[in-house]
């Protein structure tokens, strides 16, 4: 998100996590790789908060992160697509899949507004879309905000 101050006008991808107007969020377009149709989700035991499992896409294994639970307070029961985003781990970049409920939209030439002090840390700011404020997501902070999970084997 540091690019926000350097490049005030930029492109964003609008994503939907439910039917309501407030279920729309935005990500910087340069963090997005592609929109992919829903595919088989493989689940297995793990303790990392916010992850649902993995999908296999173009012979790569991608973690699937359910951001709807944090952002809307409910799980996304039906999703039609995965938004494939880039996550940075030190010098490495990995792709990750975010289930979304509908088509995503590319918004160009938008000037983002800074984060409201009361807003959660995982909102980097917002963009104005026809008078509506769409929260701009900070993926790294959003990943850290997921509620913890616990498996039996990790207790002892």
């Amino acid at each position: 998100m540091s690019g926000m101050s350097e490049l005030p006008e930029s492109n964003y991808v609008l994503l939907r996590l439910g039917p309501a107007q407030q279920d729309r969020f935005a990500l910087p377009a340069d963090a997005v790789e592609e929109l992919a149709s829903a595919s088989r989700l493989d689940k297995f035991p793990h303790t990392t908060p916010g992850l649902d499992g993995v999908i296999v896409r173009r012979k790569r294994v991608l973690a699937v992160r359910d951001v709807a639970r944090v952002l809307t307070g409910r799980a996304l029961l039906v999703h039609r697509f995965y938004l494939i985003v880039r996550r940075r781990y030190g010098s490495a970049v990995e792709l990750e899949a975010i289930p979304v409920s509908g088509d995503c939209e590319l918004i160009g030439g938008v000037i983002p507004m800074p984060r409201n002090g009361d807003a959660p840390e995982y909102f980097a700011g917002s963009i104005d879309l026809a008078g509506e404020q769409i929260p701009l997501l900070d993926l790294e902070k959003l990943a850290a905000a997921a509620p913890a999970t616990q498996f039996a084997g990790s207790r002892a």
Binding site: F44, V54, V56, V61, L62, A63, E94, A143
Partner: peptide, 28 residues
């Protein structure tokens, strides 16, 4: 075997060597 994506940062990194890909999906 395929590396566990780095997003997985919990005990699973100790539990699994990685993921095995079969025709019917990924298996730890």
């Amino acid at each position: 075997i395929y590396a566990l994506p780095r997003a997985f940062q919990g005990d699973e990194r100790q539990w699994y060597l990685g993921l095995a890909l079969f025709e019917d999906g990924a298996v730890p």
